[in-house]
Computed example of a mutant assay.
Amino acid sequence: MQLTEHFSLAELQASTKAAQLRIDNAAPPEVLPRLRKLADLLERVRTYLDTPISVTSGYRCPALNKAVGGVTSSDHMLGMAADIVAPGYGTPYDIAKALAPQVSVLGIGQIILEGVRGKQWVHISTRVPDKPANRVITITDAGAQLGIQALV
């Protein structure tokens, strides 16, 4: 099912880890409206960056979220978050730096530059966190910091 011009339901629930562990990661019907809203957000991000973006992690059922070490309150389980990269634009740091000033304009609820366990990506959510300071953060193996910080 195509959710938007460039993003499909299959793409937003695809998971190598789920396939590896034989976990059914199909989103339940009540999650589909939130995935459509997420796909709309991803379209705005794609347009703003003027380059294709790849979703490395979208919807996660609770079993998959646990298997990948996701937090129990993960927006991924609600169909409200995607981890992305856009090699045609630059590094995840470049992407996060470009998007951070546009959070409100693009309708991004939260953006997190993540650099953990030797991998880097940008987490984008439609949900606005309770604490406004947590809308734009960086998470590394050393912990969380406010704003977009250079990854070492």
Rank of each mutant, 00 (worst) to 15 (best):
S73G: 10
P52V: 11
T51K: 14
V31T: 08
G79E: 07
L78T: 00
A19T: 14
P87V: 06
L106R: 02
L106A: 00
A26C: 09
L64T: 10
R34K: 13
D75Q: 08
A86W: 05
Q102D: 04
L41W: 00
A86D: 04
Y93L: 11
Y48M: 09
P29D: 13
V68N: 08
P87G: 06
S57A: 15
Q20C: 07
S54G: 15
L21M: 10
A96T: 03
V105T: 10
P92H: 03
I23C: 09
L42P: 01
Y89N: 06
V45T: 11
S54Y: 15
S54F: 15
T91Y: 06
I84C: 01
G58P: 12
I53L: 15
T56Y: 11
A81W: 02
D94P: 12
C61N: 15
K97L: 10
A27L: 04
R60S: 13
T72C: 06
P62M: 10
G88K: 12
R34S: 07
V31N: 03
R60Y: 11
Y59I: 09
G69T: 03
T51D: 11
P52S: 12
R34P: 03
V85F: 03
P28Q: 06
A63I: 13
D83P: 07
C61V: 15
L106N: 03
G90A: 09
P92L: 04
P29A: 14
L42W: 01
D40R: 01
Y89A: 08
P101K: 02
L49D: 07
C61A: 15
Q20K: 14
S104T: 05
S73P: 00
N25G: 02
D50G: 14
A81H: 03
A100W: 00
I95G: 01
A63D: 15
T56V: 15
P101M: 01
A98K: 13
N65I: 10
G70D: 07
L49E: 06
G90Q: 07
R46C: 07
V31P: 00
G69C: 07
A100H: 02
P62V: 09
L99T: 06
A98Q: 10
A19R: 15
T51C: 14
L35D: 02
G109D: 03
A67T: 09
A82N: 04
R60C: 13
L41K: 00
V31I: 12
L35F: 05
G79H: 07
Y93I: 05
K97T: 10
I84G: 00
A67H: 08
A67G: 09
A63F: 11
K97H: 09
K37F: 04
I53W: 11
G90P: 08
V103A: 04
V55T: 15
G109C: 03
L21T: 08
D94T: 12
S74M: 06
Y89M: 06
Y48V: 06
L78C: 02
